[in-house]
Amino acid sequence: MNPQTARIRHPEPPHVGAAPATFAVQLSSTRRGARLARLLATQWLDEHAVPYRSAASRTAALIVAELAANAVRHCGSIGRDFRVSLTLTEAPPARVLRVEVTDARADKPLPPGAPWPPEDECESGRGLLLVDALSHRWGDRVNDSITKTLWAELDLPE
């Protein structure tokens, strides 16, 4: 695969309408950084009319947590940070939340055909299965020779 080519699980839809609300933060590749990503995401969503502890907020928190944990797993051992970006777009007939987690491991792209179920005795490897089940669209892209981004979109109720 050409590193400049983005592999997308679902086509990225064009965003139209009002200017989106955005949030971005760079965090350390630690368990604490992954937890903080989830907490900051739910706080920001609550401030943008997605109530804390609502079904949409809980789903978004799980998606952020899984993508952040993936970044920590890939970057934690080499001491590189990861970046979480949230974009809330009004795209009739639904509001769309886009979660992007960028890490500094373009050399570790997702294997072809991911996600796949891990063996029963495996203790990890189910995060992208959760993202696939919870999000409406998701995918990944290699940004440059250093970074890659995993993204997921969630259609929110009005």
Rank of each mutant, 00 (worst) to 15 (best):
D46S: 14
V64C: 03
S54Y: 04
G33S: 07
L67F: 11
L36K: 13
V72A: 06
L39I: 09
Q43L: 13
A19Q: 15
T59G: 01
R32G: 11
P51V: 11
P20D: 11
A61Y: 04
L36P: 02
L45M: 06
L62S: 09
A41M: 02
T30F: 02
V50P: 00
A56V: 06
R58L: 13
R38S: 13
R73W: 13
R31W: 05
A21C: 08
T59L: 08
R53N: 14
Y52M: 10
L27N: 02
A49C: 07
L45S: 02
A24W: 02
Y52N: 06
R38D: 03
A65H: 14
V72L: 07
V64M: 03
A71Q: 05
T42W: 00
A60L: 04
A71W: 04
S28T: 12
R53H: 13
P20T: 10
L62P: 00
L62N: 10
H48G: 05
A24D: 08
L39D: 10
V50Q: 01
P20G: 13
Q43S: 12
A41L: 00
A21V: 14
E47C: 07
A34D: 00
L36V: 15
T59P: 00
R35F: 12
A71N: 03
R58E: 12
S29P: 02
A69K: 11
S29G: 15
H48F: 10
